[in-house]
Design a protein around this nucleic acid. Structure first.
Lengths: 192, 192
DNA sequence: CTCCAAAAATGACCGTGGTCAATTTATAAG
DNA sequence: CTTATAAATTGACCACGGTCATTTTTGGAG
């Protein structure tokens, strides 16, 4: 039983990814067609699916990479201590997640791994989100009656709610960041 | 400029809907194929798309109807007063929403109307959810420092979070209802 | 009844994601 | 260098949602 991976494989895969990134650069994630990618990469269609389970798998990888970069950026900054500061600190992540409706939908769809064996970059980012925020909350001026982890899960829930409403015509009145701040203030620092 | 609607139209539409419901009855929402529906209804494929903008439009209608029925049922019951009672009262709605992954995804996708002119039954149900819960909260034993509407939006956010995690292999430990109760208790009756 | 314009239905056709048996290419062993 | 075998690639093909020019049906006017 051989399991050698030929150099060719890595080259082809790299060409496919680069081609996909070019296509996305020009027209956004939503407009990507597998045909365009394989033509730009100079390979046959079947080759694409030998490298990626399906189109979504490529998208999960590419969007996941960008998302990871957003997290890296956010983790560079210093820890925020109040609800508005937290909302502000998370802004780069939320901005990318809502940059395209397609991107938001895909991220939500892949936010939970269906099986342990297929935990992808996006599902990992959702765990990282909770850990990151929970870390901040340990030393932040917030309620202490429940665990930082639970508080952080709530922050995530409110962020998703706020992002959903951003795409909703019924709730155009408030801006995304205003809404999130209101939620987080009520969740993290309740008055009664 | 005539705009008469022939009787035929209503009949064909009814046949399509009945056929779709039969197909769903047998194999669930996810497995529905337009080909199967038109064949069962005894019409051509083009006819389907003369009656429904696309497959999703039919799905939104059918799932929306079932969702409305769930709300009607929940509204029959008496108003709950505590966090666990609220979670319990909403159970029929949450149960249907998570009955199939496909159903949950479609509901989330249609929960926000993209344009005012196309507010569908599902988007309307999301508004109804907030109004329903806000009504309960007015007389419930919960924090009073923020408005019932905002509190209700939070309940919705936590419910969606809990439902998402139900489909996630990383969070199988806790059951859906346990998780929702923990969230709602922390959100509605904070200790500090 | 006949006639005709609008409404409805039709089905061949298209776009795009995805499959798979057949072919080509890389590499290790002799 | 050959040869055997597994890995990689190919492209014709399929499934399914969706379109649209053409045909059929309806129902009111004369």
């Amino acid at each position: 039983m051989q399991k050698t991976v030929q150099k060719r494989t890595l080259k082809t895969r790299a060409r496919l990814i680069e081609a996909a990134e070019d296509v996305i650069e020009r027209n956004g994630y939503q407009a990507l067609r597998v045909e365009d990618v394989v033509q730009a990469a100079g390979v046959a269609k079947g080759t694409f699916f030998a490298h990626f389970r399906d189109k979504d798998a490529l998208m999960e990888m590419l969007i996941g990479e960008r998302l990871v970069a957003c997290f890296d950026q956010v983790e560079q900054g210093s820890a925020p201590h109040t609800a508005p500061e937290i909302a502000d600190a998370l802004q780069p992540i939320h901005a990318f997640m809502t940059s395209e409706r397609y991107v938001f939908d895909l991220i939500i769809r892949y936010s939970g791994a269906t099986a342990i064996t297929e935990i992808g970059p996006i599902a990992r980012c959702f765990e990282r989100y909770v850990h990151l925020v929970a870390g901040w909350l340990e030393t932040a001026k917030v309620r202490k009656d429940i665990s930082p982890d639970l508080l952080a899960e709530g922050v995530q829930a409110f962020a998703i709610q706020s992002m959903s409403l951003k795409f909703c015509a019924l709730h155009e009145a408030e801006s995304f960041s205003d809404r999130l701040e209101i939620y987080l203030d009520a969740w993290l620092t309740p008055a009664a």
